[in-house]
Design a protein around this nucleic acid. Structure first.
Lengths: 241, 241
DNA sequence: ACCTGAACACCGTTCAAGT
DNA sequence: ACCTGAACACCGTTCAAGT
């Protein structure tokens, strides 16, 4: 029998489609079922419409992909706008670090986003705004324009909170698989096998499930930030031709 | 009229298919026409066969993708095996640097490879062998197992010679486009606009076509390597819990 | 053992047609 | 103005059938 519920599953298809609704539904599908599930037909289904209806609100699927990347980066901007940390003097490093780690948290909620981002051929305005803010922290921290410019390149995707971990591409248990592979080929991979052994010996608790992604991300990030600070203090300036 | 040529275009379809021929043809198609042109049908055409014939030599398209990544990394291993640089003492940094830049050259010949590599869920043995060699240089250079382990993570894809340049995803003139975008939105992007201005002022010759990818790659790489060396000399050891 | 033709399920997208 | 049904070209892949 039908009780007086908020007719969600029963009577949904009221509200009309819109570009915004399409994009939000696309993020939802990608979050819940992975980016490969994001087809125009599946997306339409999510909205209780037909695939062809989407084309009234977006020109091509590419526009959907551009749009969901934009949504994610705007989510990042919303988060970092709320941080409000001073960036004077030595504080710049802390401020940049905090901003990047906040961005990372957003990407961890949308694990498909980095890969999609890399396929886009245009840079979204939201990305430019994010970079502008990060650059501002560096400049206020005393980095020259030139050094800050190199810094953005050196950080690469790390500036936005993600990095290419070559042993975890699928996002699954690739790490364990790689470890097993090394063990099997230990004879041909003396150094990797030795490293595994040494680490297991030093820290017997460590699951051979292995690396703490967050810790490794922060290690690399700090290595770069420390290096940049040192260059700043050495009054580093561009090697001119 | 038909002259006595080496019947390449005329009488090709002699030699039988094989897994190896399939993979080499796949690399050729991707190199010449981009990864999006690499369909089973197109690949078969390249080989003078039907698409369905390929399935006798490879199980799925995924196997083709795994295979061509493997071919590229083996090309890298062939190149770096020929380098033979000592890695003792302070030489380790030079050796690692040279090896990575050599790997980079190979990727520059196969620009589709980094993106494909990231989609693979299994790590090819060739990649493990490459990492083993790089790790060996670091260990011989005096880095602890633990530091060298972090080093591999920190380098990320840079260890293999590529990095995510966020302003050049499509591989085209995305840089110029981004610069134009910044100019247009200068009011909302004060720091980026200021940086562009400052750099143009310092170096009036610089095309606003802009960044030297190779130089930026090396900047980031050196920042990391210098940082690692400093940690080694500071007798850095893992922060244990 | 090696290759192929027909066929299937599934894409993105067009276009004329509905309300 | 907004949505849809039928249709097209193109995927990866299966399977029974050819030599």
């Amino acid at each position: 029998m039908r009780v007086a519920t908020q007719g969600q599953a029963e009577s949904a298809p009221r509200i009309p489609l819109s570009r915004d609704r399409v994009l939000r539904a696309a993020v939802k599908v990608a979050d819940e079922h992975g980016i490969s599930a994001l087809t125009m037909r599946r997306l339409a289904e999510e909205l209780g419409a037909e695939a062809m209806s989407l084309y009234y609100h977006v020109a091509k699927k590419d526009e959907v992909l551009d749009g969901i990347v934009d949504l994610v980066v705007r989510e990042i901007n919303d988060v970092v706008d709320r941080l409000e940390v001073s960036a004077e003097g030595h504080g710049w490093k802390k401020a940049v670090r905090q901003r990047i780690l906040s961005a990372r948290e957003v990407f961890l909620r949308h694990r498909w986003a980095p890969a999609v981002m890399e396929t886009r051929s245009t840079t979204s305005p939201a990305v430019l705004r994010y970079y502008d803010g990060l650059l501002g922290l560096m400049l206020r921290g005393g980095l020259s324009h030139d050094l800050a410019h190199h810094a953005l390149h050196a950080l690469g995707s790390r500036a936005l909170g993600f990095s290419q971990e070559l042993f975890d591409p699928g996002g699954g248990a690739a790490d364990e698989k790689a470890v097993a592979e090394v063990a099997k080929m230990a004879g041909h991979l003396p150094n990797l096998a030795g490293m595994l052994g040494a680490i297991a010996h030093d820290d017997p608790d460590s699951t051979p499930g292995w690396c703490d992604d967050q810790a490794e991300f922060e290690f690399g990030l700090d290595l770069l930030l420390d290096g940049l600070e040192r260059l700043r203090d050495a009054k580093w300036s561009s090697r001119r031709k």
